[in-house]
């Protein structure tokens, strides 16, 4: 997948519950209560999250009439959901590797890191690549990433002074590995049929 797709996919994975749900759905047999116990989430909160994932076409909900047996899954990943799961696995091990986690809980963290890795180094160009964030949220996230020393902010003297952002030297080789893994994942979009 390309960087723009990767940015959309990693953005979809942000938040408290999306990654844990995707990562544990299979081992819960695709069933609601085993997943709920495993994640230690309240049933209503899990239900809300699942409804959102259904409308985002990440998972498919099987009705009691679709299911041939009560032990069969209530939810299954769509092809899009499968692509997201693969990225979630990369992000999960990446956050361990760079010892900064959980970055995915806050939106835009991973899209920003991917943008920076691809030499989008100015505020405006990052904002445009990411598409949707408000300038305020982007500047908050950049500030946080700088405080974590994942990102370095520098002043460049061109005709006029500009700020540039870079992945900190220490993390550049890790980011290269992460990007290689993500780029090799097939990016199935919503609406992709089996």
């Amino acid at each position: 997948m390309h960087v723009k797709e990767a940015i959309q996919f990693t953005h979809q994975l942000s938040g408290r519950w999306v990654m844990p749900i995707l990562l544990h759905l299979h081992s819960s047999g695709g069933r609601f209560t085993p997943l709920q116990k495993k994640l230690e989430i309240s049933p209503s909160r899990l239900s809300d999250n699942m409804t959102k994932l259904v409308s985002a076409e990440v998972v498919q909900r099987l009705t009691p009439y679709d299911r041939r047996h009560p032990l069969l899954p209530e939810y299954k990943l769509t092809p899009y959901g499968n692509s997201l799961l693969e990225i979630a696995m990369v992000i999960q091990s990446a956050e361990k590797a760079i010892n900064h986690g959980p970055l995915h809980r806050k939106n835009w963290n991973w899209p920003i890191l991917l943008a920076l890795f691809h030499q989008y180094d100015r505020f405006q160009s990052i904002l445009e690549l990411l598409g949707k964030p408000s300038p305020r949220i982007l500047s908050t996230r950049l500030k946080e990433l700088c405080e974590m020393e994942l990102v370095k902010k520098e002043i460049k003297e061109e005709p006029k002074l500009v700020y540039t952002y870079k992945i900190n030297e220490t993390y550049r080789s890790s980011m290269a590995v992460i990007w290689k893994e993500i780029s090799e994942i097939e990016g199935n979009k919503p609406n992709t049929k089996d």
Binding site: F32, P34, M50, T63, E74
Partner: peptide, 10 residues
């Protein structure tokens, strides 16, 4: 008789 918990029961 077997039971399995489900989110939606019909």
């Amino acid at each position: 008789i077997g039971f399995a918990e489900a989110e939606t029961v019909a």
